[in-house]
Amino acid sequence: MLTIGGKSFHSRLMLGTGKYPTFQSQKKAVIASKTEILTFAVRRMNIFDENEPNLLEELDLQQYDLLPNTAGAKTANEAVRIARLAKATGLCDMIKVEVIGCEKTLLPDPFETMKASVQLLEEGFTVLTYTSDDVVLAKRLEEAGVHAIMPGASPIGSGQGIINTMNLQFIIEQSDIPVIVDAGIGSPSDAAYAMELGADGVLLNTAVSGAKGPIQMAEAMRLAVQSGRLGYKAGRIPKRMYGMKSSPETAMIE
């Protein structure tokens, strides 16, 4: 079970809800993923077009925990404002703190991220912080009291997979709170690998919503996360430089 801020989840896959080709494919992909946590963004309602469909109306929200993000924020103050708006829906206590510091790489601003996380913890939020793979920053965030660390595997939406395995391993090893690998996952093998390294969960969006078959990919990701977790628990064999026979060397036929 994955426990974040006192709440437990069977699924270790968190799914983003952005950029699906259709609401229908999104709905089916969410079901196929068997996720229990869905992420959302907070934006202006298009009040000038009352026919605009609302994503939330398409999903059975009773079945999921909602994890709104502070995407769009470039400062701690903006992130805190978005988080308060999200909480005011009355639908969630969790917040994914995301404060972008570089428009090109979409890497987080560490100073503003820390500031926003501390403020939201003071306000009683369950805080899951999106961060880079910086090992010391992850430690500092944990010391500040965040409920989960969400290091990016690689830049958001890049599909590059895990580009700094060593840092991710350091973060996983040092953390006493859940580590959710967020951002940059491109394929099921990336998700499985993150779990094999000992991550407590994976959050992804574009890898599913941008796939040719989002519904199949959602299922593939579900299986990959389960498989990676099982492999982690089973404990992989050490790597060797040279070969080692797996068939007996005795009773050879002559």
């Binding site: 952005g18 907070v42 609302n54 993000n69 995407a71």
Partner: peptide, 10 residues
């Protein structure tokens, strides 16, 4: 006045 809601996001 800002009127906001949840939209798709990751």
């Amino acid at each position: 006045i800002e009127i906001v809601h949840f939209v798709g996001g990751g």
